[in-house]
Write a protein that binds this DNA or RNA. Structure first.
Lengths: 233, 233
DNA sequence: GCAAAAGTGTTGGGAGTACACCCATGC
DNA sequence: GCATGGGTGTACTCCCAACACTTTTGC
């Protein structure tokens, strides 16, 4: 090893995952219980292992808690203030993840005491995890307005009213269902199925699914496009 | 220290800064020469010191090379693939920075062999620094379309044609000057000065400067707003 | 007086928003 | 037959994009 490297201080490197799930009504984050006496909650976290990439480590952490693989995962931010972990200085790279809660809610690992919390009613969190969640919500809102990532939170088959409820939850508002429907369908990303949802409403809403081809191609544009050169001004 | 911490591998933590500068014609990044025999270029980087935050470290690195303080600085991404640094595993947190090149071009530290390169004509770069620059350009484009950060690259006094050239360079296109001018002025962020630029064109263009109050308030909205709940759909 | 860049106005199309009524079904 | 949620259409506004001529001044 070169001398230049030897002189440097190493740091512990952690990953923390903000895991979002939608239960049909509200948008939730998955937290785990920490400590014994006083109830403290924290994000699911873990340490970087020597042979894995940051993203692999973040995916492993989500898998350990939820049993889910191939979830949506995106790096959020690296947090490294001295003193953020009072015991030893630790750099944490936070990732946020979107999981299809409805499909897999039952699979939460029992080794961790985990609970879903509404993003609008969070407990006090460990260290700077509150900042992480706040930043993740901001990023999710921004991202969902530009890219079709909302679908990562829904089952493969979903109805337009379900999708609207999801966006209502993300943005904490109540979109106009006529405009919402028109705008979503104008993306041509959805395929209408002949099957109707049963049991929830009397009339029943048609199921839709993503058009896989168009979905792949639309990663960079959805509702509001990241402006192309020609359209910025 | 708790046993849980002791068992973990520590890693070296570096910071790399993508420093953008605008010379009046093109958008450039500042690179430093590496190695002796073969010419290799890299981003300006450094190691995290025990007492500083990630952002402080990134600011220090920009200062060491350019002598500039209080430049625009934003975290880009953490890069941590095993093998990205073949000598020893290093996690690098990349920041991008915008500097007012015209005001301070002469102050580059001579301790580092540094050169400005057009973002459209970059040399091969060390490690994954090419990925970092590519991501930084993408982020700059996105960010500049939504927030008034372009001004960080210009002197305090600038003309509308200068500003248009900057945006032309960022997006590698040629905006319509009538639409550009109207859109920029509609933000009400600029104050027209009575002074005209001399020497460049015969007619001379009026100088403008940022309205500091309005600029502060506009950090979250500029050309295209990050959609508010009511306007997304 | 001419070359070079600065500065400005109009118009058409598309997207967004607001808004209200009918439909299908289970009970 | 009625209550509940599903589904659709229209009109207005505003923003954006396209486009060309006049102005100023140094030479």
């Amino acid at each position: 090893m070169l001398a230049q490297y030897k002189e440097q201080h190493p740091y512990l490197l952690a990953l923390d995952s903000i895991i979002f799930g939608f239960d049909g009504e509200g948008l939730n984050v998955l937290l785990v219980e920490r400590g014994v006496g006083e109830k403290t909650w924290s994000l699911m976290g873990g340490w970087l292992q020597p042979q894995e990439s940051l993203e692999q480590a973040a995916a492993r952490i989500v898998f350990d808690l939820t049993g889910l693989k191939e979830v949506y995962l995106e790096q959020l931010h690296a947090f490294g203030n001295p003193g953020r972990d009072p015991i030893v200085r630790t750099i944490s790279v936070a990732y946020f993840s979107l999981v299809k809660l409805a499909d897999h809610a039952a699979k939460l690992s029992e080794a961790f005491k985990a609970r879903w919390f509404s993003i609008y009613n969070l407990p006090n969190l460990l260290f700077d995890h509150g900042d992480m969640v706040a930043l993740a919500i901001e990023r999710l809102r921004y991202k969902a307005s530009q890219h079709p990532i909302g679908f990562e939170l829904l089952p493969n088959k979903f109805t337009i009213p379900q999708l609207k409820k999801l966006y209502d939850a993300i943005y904490h508002t109540d979109f106009d269902k006529r405009n919402f429907s028109r705008k979503i369908l104008s993306t041509k990303l959805l395929i209408k199925l002949s099957e109707k949802q049963k049991g929830y409403s009397k009339k029943g809403a048609f199921y839709y699914q993503l058009d896989p081809d168009r979905y792949q191609k639309s990663v960079h544009s959805f509702l509001n496009v990241i402006p192309h050169a020609e359209t910025i001004m």
